[in-house]
Design a protein around this nucleic acid. Structure first.
Lengths: 209, 209
DNA sequence: CACAAAATACCCTTTTTCGGGGATATGAAA
DNA sequence: TTTCATATCCCCGAAAAAGGGTATTTTGTG
């Protein structure tokens, strides 16, 4: 047998780290070489001691896993990243994949699946669990996974969600109410909804606020 | 030393269960007697073999931990329940406590805190970690934690969130648009907001939809 | 610099929501 | 039995948002 696959875990919950260690403990061919609870500590560790596969939680505080993933791929091109999360929403998964991850496993995976995912990732293949694959396969072909909003639009969206009217937002931002209205219409169009209620719901569901 | 405290874990993520087992492993005076990944299995197990303290995840599929908690207290009055979750939102915590839980720990707790929480719960005391306690202490004295909505109001709220107008909702529910408007006004009043945008945000934050 | 994207501003009309009342029927709780 | 909450329906007027455009100025990036 070759040298074991070196696995590094990044998750802000020590409990989850402990859980993964438990699941992988005694698994031949896999060795957990370290773990971190935040992005900064992870980068520090990996600079000193690289890993083959990184298990990366999506929901890290401060720098989210979604943001950390491309950084990791940039700093350590040969390293494989497996997304790790409780969320099985389409948007999260596709964002993760599009940012260079080698797969995405839910925290509800079994030991067998986790091992399989790590081995596949190590071999340069993409691993998706049945559960995740089913979500990806679902109809939603050409629809925008996460609509791209400009920073100004996000700003205005947040103020709308706070309950401000166009006029109040205009005063707050020192712009014309008509401008706010324009942004608002663009938001409705981009999010493909017909009124404020649906807009706020979609925005919250996609984490845009 | 007396017989060890019997702990039962309910969480839909095997990984988290494994993590807790790891944290409690070797801890004198505490014994993990079993675990379950859903409410039904948990009830079955506990009927056969009761426990002293149950660690209960808030976010279970199907029957949520929030709903399971009162059932557990009803079936096994002497058993203590510790809420377990990644969410540190005020509403979740207070709902859990009001439903008879002996405390609430975040999944990011350390081994020491977890042990402390279990021991305190076993002794019939309430345990709140520093982090959780701080959230509870925060100003929000007389405000309604979770506004009480009637089932009809929730129904209409959900339809509003889907983007339907009063007229569309009226057609859907076979009632007058004026009635829908009345409910809508009551919703605005109960949630203490001035427009739909804020209403949807508050509703989603409190898990009313 | 040139080009595209973003942000800004404006027009008109219609629809919807909001704010403020009031009123009736029903069933459950005090 | 008499409240009380819920659900239903109604009126009016004002405010806001939505639908449909057009157009100018920044600003960022190749």
């Amino acid at each position: 047998m070759n040298s074991p696959i070196k696995v590094f875990i990044i998750d802000d919950h020590p409990m989850v780290i402990e859980g993964i260690r438990g699941l992988l403990n005694g698994e031949p061919g896999i060795e957990v070489t370290g773990s971190a609870t935040d992005a900064f500590a992870a980068m520090e560790f990996l600079k000193a001691q690289t890993a083959d596969v990184v298990l990366l939680d999506i929901n890290l505080p401060e720098v989210s896993g979604l943001d950390l993933c491309p950084e990791l791929k940039a700093s350590f091109p040969k390293m494989k990243v497996l997304g790790l999360s409780t969320f099985k929403e389409r948007s999260f998964i596709s964002r993760m994949i599009s940012q260079g991850a080698s797969g995405y496993v839910l925290k509800s995976v079994s030991r067998e699946e986790l091992v399989e995912a790590i081995q596949q990732a190590y071999r340069g293949k993409m691993y998706l669990s049945m559960e995740v694959a089913q979500i990806m396969v679902q109809p939603e072909p050409a629809s925008a996974p996460v609509p791209m909003l400009t920073s100004r639009e996000k700003e205005i969206l947040a103020l709308i969600a706070e309950g401000l009217t166009n006029n109040q937002i205009a005063e707050r931002l020192f712009i014309s109410p008509l401008t706010v209205d324009s942004h608002r219409k663009n938001l409705l169009a981009k999010l493909e909804v017909k009124n404020t209620a649906a807009m706020i719901r979609i925005a919250l569901e996609h984490g845009l606020i």
